[in-house]
């Protein structure tokens, strides 16, 4: 079950011509999820800082 499905790393990247579709989907999704976490985290920190400054 854990045998590498490709003969080499180049085959893994190209995936018989399907690599461009597969990798695009995974990279875009990873970027969207990561950026979402970062944006919300940043907004939360800015909000906390503003509220702290206002109360001081």
């Amino acid at each position: 079950m854990f045998n590498f499905s490709f003969t080499n790393f180049y085959d893994f990247l190209t995936m018989d011509g399907h690599g461009v579709y597969v990798w695009t989907v995974y990279l875009v999704t990873f970027a969207l999820i990561a950026v979402s976490f970062l944006i919300v985290r940043r907004k939360l920190n800015v909000f906390k800082r503003k509220l702290k400054n206002a109360s001081e």
């Binding site: 079950m1 590498f4 995936m15 018989d16 690599g19 597969v22 989907v25 999704t29």
Partner: peptide, 20 residues
């Protein structure tokens, strides 16, 4: 992406299933 076997009909494009 790396260890699941290739699909007999769709080839490697089916690997999008693990995300879709």
């Amino acid at each position: 992406l790396a260890f699941a076997p290739e699909d007999a009909i769709q080839g490697n494009s089916y690997r999008i299933i693990f995300l879709h």
